[in-house]
Every structure is written in structure tokens, then in C-alpha cells.
Nucleic acid binder design. Structure first.
Lengths: 217, 217
DNA sequence: TTATTTCTGTGTACGGTAGACACTGTTTCC
DNA sequence: GGAAACAGTGTCTACCGTACACAGAAATAA
């Protein structure tokens, strides 16, 4: 199914590299200098080979990024005990924790792309904790909503912690009258914790909303 | 503040193009062939000039994409009457409606980028409808949660309506035992409406969650 | 053992990209 | 009627992903 499933090796020279080693080098570049810095040339140089050698391990750059994502996100943690709410909350927190060290990950997931097994495992483990009161479609939608919250916050965090707020501040200084509600909200936000609180607030709302629905049934 | 604010013109030849015309051409290309097809060369050819002429109107490609986004999303609709819930729901629906014709828009918002006035206006109009029971920070977080839902669904819709589902189906045929919850949910999803219902489900949960909090105060 | 097959890593080449810069010609102000 | 400012163009550079042919290494077949 996936191109990186290892083929049975027969003759010829032993490969000097590993797909994992390549992906790790690429991830290191992306972590340090952003996804745009990840070029075949650069990654190859970092592992000490020529760029064309990479194509023996990966069909193209698209697939390299897919592998990077798979490795960066990894497998979901084993579902702990507890009710669906604490389990789903932990799931969301864990997923955000995986995105956090890799600001480029959100960018990499934008647009059509191949989907890896780890991504499916994350979906699986989230779906598994939801109670039977919801239909299958509703469970999918619930997971999507939570995942949306994770991605929103992860994406915001990727913009250098408040580049958005900085831009807003700049504009507000000139056009505060055009954006009264924004100005009011921003002046209030300045004095509080970072993205963690934003994440938890949204997450609690979604979980509250799910709880309302579940208990109603 | 923004580079596209028109400078007072003095001497020299009259510009043959308009930033708007350039952006519209670029949007047309992106709508039809994706964001990757938007190159300076291509856009310039479509408006009938050389690529270098575009740099008289826009500092670089990054800014061109920012303008494309601004025009594609446009200004928020005037807030209708009604309680905060129906207003915020309408806001979310309107925003999704703006994303829908432009599948590339989500991709374009990934990663750090300049933020335009229209984007701020959308934030403003959402913040304005939220009741005073919430703090400024909470109002921001609430809007982020709703926006996250919009973006999640818009992003899913951009992947050719079910490319995700198709991939899942493929994998499930081979490894259904590894993903039982996913298999169960998917088989249930197959027989129901498209992304609209997924959007509404998540949105209603978020709004329910907000309502719980607001009424508690 | 030798010959053959198969695969790895490399060098070269191509078409594409964004953008720097110098130039010509047009428009408007002094 | 200069002179200054600006629009559009042609040329150039550096870099990107990747197609393709080739040399050498390793394992198999004779």
C-alpha cells in the first residue's frame, strides 16, 4: 500500500542510507529553518550524499514531506482509562504536543497529500473512545471538530507566538475606531497566558457541546 | 500600513494594470488549476504583460497571494439581527461560503503570512456579536474555535470531496482489523450527506458549549 | 571460478521558478 | 522646453525538482 514498505532485497549494493535517516535530516532542517528550507539538495548534503541518491528512497519531494509528517506526528499514545471526555481531552492534548515541536507540520498538511498510517491510527484512537450514543458519522464529525481545534492552535503557535497579535496591534493603533470589538478584546488578551489557555478554552467548549448531545440521548 | 494603499501619483506613464486585475487573474488560475499553478509568468501572461511588470504592483509573490486571499474572502456580511448564537452561526456559514469557491485559500493561509484588513474585519464582526459574559480573551478564543471548525471543513472540502475517505477505504480493505472503530464509523458515513452536515455538527457542538458557559454566568 | 543480473550512488542536463537590475520610452511638473 | 519620475521590458542569476545514462558493487547463476 505505502511506497515505503520495504521491498525484499536481492542483489546489488547495500543501500548506504535509510528512509528514516533522510526523513530525520529533513525534519531537522524544517524544525530549524522552516519547510521552505527543505530541499533535496539541502537534505542530501546534510546526510552526506548527492541529491539524486535520495530518489532511491523516495519517489519525490511530496512523498518525502509525507514521511516527515508521519515521523513527526508518530503513533498515538495508548488510550488510557477514564470516561470519553478525559480520554478525548488527553488525545487532543497529545496531538497538539506532537505538532508543537514542528511548526511546519500544519503547513505540510495543507492541500491534497498522501495520508499515512499514523494519521489513521490517530483517527482510530479518537474514534474508539467516543461513546455509542453517537452515530458513526457523528463520531467522525466530532473528531474532526476536535482536530480542527488542535490544528487551529498549532497553526497559530507556528506564527512565532503572536505575529498575528503584533499585526493586529499595529493596525489597531491606526484604525482602532474601525475595530472596536477587536480593540477591546486585544487589550484584554495582552495580560493573560499564551496559547495553552486558548487551546483549553476551545477544547472545553467542544467537549461541553458533545456532552450536551450525549446526555440528551 | 499595507503596501497596496495607493500612493499619490505624480509623474510618469499611467499604469496599464491594476492590482485588482492582477489578483483576479491569479485567483482565476488558482481556482481552476490550484495554487501551484499561480506563477508570476502565468499570471502576467493571462493579463497580457510580462512577469516583471507585475513587480510594479506587488513587492513579491508572497504579497500577491496575500492580496488574492483578501479579495477571495472579501468583507464580512453586515451582522444581521438576532441573538449571539444565530449571528455567530451565520458568520461561520458565511465564512465557509467564502472559502468554498476557492479550495486553495486554506493552503494559502498556512504558514506565516501578512494579514489583511478584511481578515481583521471578519474577526471584528465575530467578536462584536459575542455577549459580554465572556472576557476579551475568551471571546478571542471562541472565535478561534469557530474559525478552526470552518477551516477544518474547508480544508477537507478542498481535497476533492472524499479523497480522504477514498484513502481510508483503501487502507481499510487491507487492514480493517487494525482500525475497527474507523471501519465502523466509515461504513456508517457512506450513506449520508456531504461536508455540510459535518460542518453543522461541529458548529452546533461548539455553540452548545459556548451556550453552557454563557448561561452558567 | 566466472558471467550475469540487479541495484546503488553519481554526473549531467532540462525546464521551471522568483527576483535583481539596467534600459527605453512616456508622462507630468518646473 | 528641459528635467525628473515612473511603467513596462529584456536579460541575467541562483535555485528548484527530477529525468536519464552510467560506473561500480554485490549477489546469483553457470
Amino acid at each position: 500500500m505505502f511506497f515505503w514498505e520495504e521491498r525484499p532485497r536481492t542483489r546489488g549494493p547495500k543501500p548506504a542510507l535509510t528512509l528514516d535517516r533522510i526523513a530525520d535530516a529533513a525534519i531537522a532542517v524544517a524544525d530549524a529553518e522552516g519547510l521552505a528550507a527543505v530541499t533535496m539538495q539541502r537534505v542530501a548534503a546534510d546526510v552526506g550524499y548527492t541529491k539524486m541518491s535520495l530518489y532511491r528512497y523516495v519517489p519525490g519531494k511530496t512523498e518525502l514531506v509525507a514521511v516527515m509528517l508521519e515521523r513527526a506526528i508518530g503513533e498515538p499514545p495508548v488510550g488510557g482509562a477514564g470516561d470519553w471526555r478525559t480520554a478525548l481531552s488527553a488525545w487532543a492534548e497529545a496531538l497538539l504536543g506532537r505538532y508543537a515541536p514542528h511548526p511546519w507540520a500544519i503547513e505540510a498538511t495543507a492541500g491534497g497529500r498522501p495520508i499515512g498510517p499514523n494519521e489513521l491510527s490517530w483517527m482510530e484512537s479518537a474514534l474508539a473512545v467516543l461513546p455509542g450514543g453517537l452515530t458513526g458519522a457523528e463520531r467522525m464529525d466530532a473528531v474532526a471538530a476536535v482536530a480542527g481545534q488542535v490544528r487551529m492552535i498549532a497553526g497559530q503557535a507556528a506564527t512565532t507566538e503572536g505575529e498575528l497579535t503584533a499585526t493586529i496591534g499595529l493596525v489597531l493603533r491606526e484604525h482602532a475606531d474601525r475595530f472596536p470589538a477587536l480593540a477591546a478584546a486585544v487589550s484584554d488578551t495582552a495580560t493573560r497566558g499564551g496559547q495553552d489557555q486558548a487551546f483549553r478554552f476551545g477544547l472545553e467548549r467542544i467537549l461541553d457541546g458533545l456532552e450536551v448531545l450525549i446526555q440528551r440521548r
